[in-house]
Amino acid sequence: MSVGGPDVLFDVNHPRLSNYCAYRQSVQTRLLHILRENPGCRFLEIGVGPILRQEQFKSIDELRIEYVGLDFKHICAKHRIDLAAASIANRNIRFLGNVVGTYLFNLIRLMRHGEAFDIIYLDGNHSIYVDLAAAIAAVRLLKPRGLLLFNDVRFVFGQTELNQKTALADIAKTKELTEDEANEPHVTIIIREYLIPMFSFAVVRSWSDPDWIVLRAPSSAPWLRI
Rank of each mutant, 00 (worst) to 15 (best):
I171D: 15
L132K: 07
L142T: 03
T174F: 02
Q56W: 01
A167C: 12
D82G: 04
H74S: 14
R24C: 11
L9T: 13
L215W: 05
A22D: 10
L122C: 02
K78F: 05
S87F: 06
L148G: 01
H126K: 04
A77Y: 14
A135H: 02
K58T: 10
V3P: 06
A84R: 07
E179G: 02
Q56G: 01
S208P: 05
E181S: 09
R16E: 12
R140W: 09
P6W: 08
H33W: 01
F105E: 10
V130K: 04
D209A: 05
S59I: 09
L31N: 05
N151Q: 04
P144L: 08
P144I: 10
R91L: 14
G158Y: 03
N98K: 03
L70N: 01
Q54E: 11
V27D: 05
D152H: 02
P218H: 06
H126E: 03
C41Y: 08
Q56E: 10
E184Q: 13
G114T: 12
H186F: 08
H14P: 07
S200M: 06
V214W: 01
V8L: 11
F10W: 14
E181W: 00
N151A: 03
E37L: 00
Y129K: 11
G146M: 10
G40A: 04
D7R: 04
S220H: 05
E193H: 02
V8Q: 11
Y20W: 14
I213V: 14
N19S: 09
I128C: 03
T178G: 11
P222A: 12
S26D: 14
G40Q: 12
I226D: 07
Q159P: 01
H113M: 12
K173Q: 15
E181Q: 14
Q28F: 10
M198S: 15
R140Y: 13
P218F: 09
L96W: 10
F117E: 14
I119P: 06
G69R: 07
I60M: 11
N106D: 09
L63A: 13
I128P: 00
I81F: 15
S208Q: 02
Q164F: 15
F95N: 07
E37K: 01
V3A: 07
R112Y: 13
R145D: 12
P210S: 00
A134I: 09
L147M: 13
E37Y: 00
A167E: 14
K73R: 11
V68H: 10
H74W: 08
N13A: 13
R216D: 09
G158S: 08
F157S: 14
Q28N: 08
F95K: 11
H74Y: 12
P6A: 15
L110R: 12
V8F: 11
T166Q: 03
A77N: 13
V99G: 00
D82C: 09
A84W: 10
E62Q: 05
V8I: 13
L147Y: 15
V99L: 04
N98R: 01
Y103H: 08
R94M: 07
M198H: 15
R225K: 10
R94P: 07
I171W: 14
A85I: 07
R42L: 01
G146F: 10
H33V: 03
